[in-house]
Design a protein around this nucleic acid. Structure first.
Length: 202
DNA sequence: CGCTCGATATTCT
DNA sequence: GAATATCGAGCGA
């Protein structure tokens, strides 16, 4: 098992977002000298980029919060929103400027008991089927912002996974600008996608 | 089931 | 002061 390198992330952000569907998100937690591994298959992503993307945190230029998006690719950009939720991105872009890929949902594969401890829920399907849910289940906070996700030694990283049979592009969710862009990428076979796939109006 | 609405704090205007 | 890359309780069908 290998980790996609910085080369993988040095491409147009929507292309990276699409390619990340099927990869494995890994979270290592150290507790009492023990290593605990939690992992899941990425089934939903969204691309955010560029100064010409009005929906992106980066569109107004670098600030204290978003500066990671302007740094090296393949790093974690974690932010806090709506007063109670964290969201995790991987930085990615082709050339200058900025960009990142929001990880919106994963399908749990390893360390499920641990995830349930960090995020107690009745329904298994509610464990990691959303950007704020999966960060809680994997114990991801802004303390992890900036970590190198191309490195196995990190507490949070991405491994190569299995290629999905198909990937569908839809408009992004929860934003008010640039809603026409098809920059959300979903594995339609997974029950863990955060919302039903929108059918195009005829 | 599906939809509406309120919580809550960090960030930027 | 306003907005926010969300979630879940509460309601009605």
């Amino acid at each position: 098992v290998i980790c996609p390198s910085t080369t993988f992330y040095r491409r147009p952000t929507p292309e990276v977002a699409r390619a990340l569907v099927g990869k494995t998100l890994v979270r290592m937690v150290r507790t009492n000298g023990r290593k605990l591994r939690m992992a899941g298959r990425i089934v939903e992503t969204e691309a955010y980029g560029y100064s010409d993307d009005p929906a992106s945190h980066a569109c107004m230029g670098p600030t204290v919060r978003n500066k990671v998006m302007f740094g090296e690719v393949g790093r974690a950009y974690v932010y806090f929103t709506y007063g109670s939720h964290y969201c995790v991105n991987v930085t990615a872009r082709s050339a200058c400027d900025a960009g990142g890929v929001l990880i919106r949902a994963i399908e749990p594969s390893e360390g499920i008991q641990a995830m349930k401890r960090f995020r107690p829920v009745d329904e298994m399907l509610s464990l990691t089927s959303g950007p704020g849910k999966l960060t809680q289940a994997l114990k991801i906070t802004s303390l992890l912002s900036g970590v190198d996700m191309t490195d196995k030694r990190s507490e949070l990283y991405i491994e190569s996974g299995s290629r999905p049979v198909s990937v569908i592009a839809t408009p992004r969710i929860g934003i008010t600008r640039a809603t026409d862009r098809q920059w959300r990428f979903v594995d339609p076979a997974s029950p863990y996608v955060s919302r039903k796939i929108q059918i195009k109006a005829l």
